[in-house]
């Protein structure tokens, strides 16, 4: 059946499109922003931590 063949090719094409978009965006982002900024996320950062801080938890 021709329908399933077209469907298969469409699936390949759409998958390639999505993967290509992600790859391009990934490269673009790495170019547009400094690596330091992209890697600036720190662990935790939750209001739970701030509450603990207020209680004088650390050190």
């Amino acid at each position: 059946m021709i329908f399933w063949e077209i469907f298969s090719y469409a699936a390949w094409a759409l998958a390639a499109l999505l993967l290509g978009w992600m790859l391009l965006d990934l490269i673009k982002v790495s170019k547009d922003y400094s690596e330091e900024f992209l890697l600036s996320a720190r662990e935790g950062a939750d209001e739970l931590l701030q509450q603990d801080h207020a209680q004088g938890g650390k050190k």
Binding site: A11, W12, L14, A15
Partner: peptide, 10 residues
């Protein structure tokens, strides 16, 4: 195969 790849891609 195309549908496996497409599922993961989407």
């Amino acid at each position: 195969k195309p549908f496996v790849v497409l599922t993961i891609a989407i």
